[in-house]
Simulated scan of single mutants.
Amino acid sequence: MEHFAPHPSSQFEGYYSKFDLASGSHIALIICSVPGAKSRPHMVSFTYYPSSGHPIFQREHFVDNIERVTTDEKTKAFDLRVPGMGVMSTEGNGRTSYNFAAEDGSWSLEAQCEEDYMPWRKDKSTPEGWMVHLPFPLHWHVHSLCSPATFTLDIPALGDAFPAQDRKSRATIHQEKNWANSFPDAHMWVQAWDNEEKRGICLAGGKIMYNTAYMLGYRSPSLNLDFVPPFSVSYLNLLSPFMSATNDWDTRTFSISVSNYTHKLELKARAPKEPGWFGLASPFPDGHRANFCRESFIATIEARIWVREGWWPWSAWKEVKTERWEGASLEFAGGYYPERGESKKD
């Protein structure tokens, strides 16, 4: 909970909530602040994403203020209050509720987590582990992999194009947070979850501190794996004994192979060029820069997992799992997204 709670001294702080609706549609809600920025310091971004990937409804509200209020010092419960728009409220047990309505009446959302949230791991509350305390230029925290919730959604701006099954139903929520100085120059993000089989994967990383580094977590009923630095790093973008990664915006593909002393994982993600991509603003010291991220929620992710058969570094690998997810998330951002910037029209 302490990593999800506000960090008042950070130069920026952003909360990302992705709702997977029972119909197959999705909602992405971002609440982000760069308190010292002169332009666009505060943003609430709302995206409604149909299961087909079209048509996407999006509003980015650059608001006057977002209040980060700790409501219980002991449990670190807190509110994110957007004057005139609504509140995201998190309890001490990690459960979160949302109550937002756009001032122009174009959309509104109410949601409530039903049970305790599902953390990154029971024995490790954040992907970074002990590294969360280091002075990195950016920190990435996953608060919830998949929390069950109920919601009520209204999008009058869509009129009859808004399906009845998405007005009030059940969902699961994936929740993340970034904080520190600013977004990296280039990064990738991949996320998928199968709620019926309780298996999922989540990855984030890119260029940071003259290196390329990723953090990856795989979850299933029988196997839980994390791959983090010093294994998942390309040092000075030249030396990478345990990891290789490639991305190509033109073909909308990303792949990574990473290992540690006991396990190896290969991941391949791809998404169709059209439809299904939407832009997002990213926080930088000068404020939110529009269209610096590009996301799809109709990606396909494939993963293969091996275990080392012996204790020696040269011991052979044995394949133990092959996984596949449809309707997954794939994001290119910054330098990995060549069409970034405000000239791109969504």
Score class of each variant (00 low, 15 high):
Thr152His: 11
Tyr210Lys: 14
Val44Leu: 15
Phe332Pro: 03
Gly94Leu: 12
Trp325Tyr: 13
His141Ser: 02
Asp226Lys: 10
Glu326Asp: 10
Glu91Pro: 00
Ile201Phe: 13
Met209Ile: 09
Ala316Glu: 10
Pro283Ala: 04
Leu158Phe: 05
Lys38Asp: 06
Lys268Phe: 12
His133Ile: 01
Asp104Leu: 09
Ala171Ser: 08
Ser39Ile: 10
Ala102Val: 04
Asp226Glu: 12
Arg308Pro: 11
Thr71Met: 14
Tyr117His: 06
Lys207Arg: 12
Glu295Ser: 07
Ser97Gly: 07
Glu176Gly: 11
Lys122Ser: 08
Glu323Gly: 05
Ser89Cys: 07
Val142His: 05
Ala333His: 05
Glu339Gln: 13
Pro184Tyr: 09
Ala111Gly: 04
Ser10Met: 09
Glu266Ala: 07
Pro285Asn: 08
Phe162His: 13
Arg289Trp: 06
Trp325Val: 10
Trp130Glu: 08
Cys202His: 12
Lys318Asn: 08
Lys345Asn: 12
Ala299Glu: 03
Val320Trp: 01
Ala186Ser: 15
Gly84His: 12
Met85Tyr: 08
Trp130Asp: 05
Met118Gly: 00
Ser106Tyr: 08
Ser255Cys: 11
Gly276Trp: 11
Ser33Ile: 08
Met118Asp: 02
Ala316Val: 11
Ser23Glu: 06
Asn181Lys: 13
Val307Trp: 00
Leu145Val: 05
Glu323Met: 14
Gly14Asp: 10
Ala186Leu: 02
Thr126Asn: 15
Arg304Val: 10
Val69Asn: 03
Arg270Trp: 12
Leu239Pro: 03
Ala290Lys: 07
Lys168Ser: 15
Leu223Trp: 13
Pro313Gln: 01
Ser220Gln: 14
Lys273Ala: 04
Leu330Thr: 13
Thr172Asn: 06
Glu339His: 10
Leu280Asn: 11
Val258Arg: 00
Gly279Val: 09
Tyr49Cys: 11
Ser17Cys: 03
Cys146Val: 00
Asp79Tyr: 00
Lys177Cys: 13
His7Trp: 09
Thr152Met: 04
Glu339Asp: 15
Thr47Val: 15
Thr90Ile: 12
Thr47His: 01
Thr322Met: 04
Phe231Val: 05
Glu342Arg: 07
Ser17Asp: 12
Gly287Asn: 02
Trp193Pro: 00
Pro275Tyr: 14
Ser234Tyr: 09
Asp194Val: 04
Gly217Trp: 02
Asp250His: 09
Pro313Ala: 00
Lys168Gly: 14
Asp72Lys: 10
Val69Gln: 08
Lys124Ile: 03
Phe100Arg: 10
Thr126Leu: 04
Tyr16Ile: 15
His143Lys: 01
Ile31Asn: 06
Ala271Lys: 01
Lys264Cys: 13
Ala281Thr: 11
Trp317Arg: 11
Phe292Tyr: 15
His7Ile: 06
Asn93Trp: 05
Ile298His: 02
Thr150Gly: 03
Pro221Leu: 03
Phe151Val: 10
Pro55Ser: 09
Ile305Ala: 01
Val233Trp: 13
Lys74His: 12
Glu128Trp: 04
Lys177His: 09
Ser45Ala: 11
Pro313Arg: 00
Ala102Asn: 04
Pro338Phe: 05
Thr150Glu: 07
His42Gln: 08
His42Asp: 12
Asp72Glu: 15
Gly334Phe: 14
Leu80Tyr: 06
Gly341Asn: 00
His42Arg: 06
Ala328Met: 11
Arg252Cys: 10
Asn260Tyr: 06
Pro41Arg: 09
Thr75Pro: 04
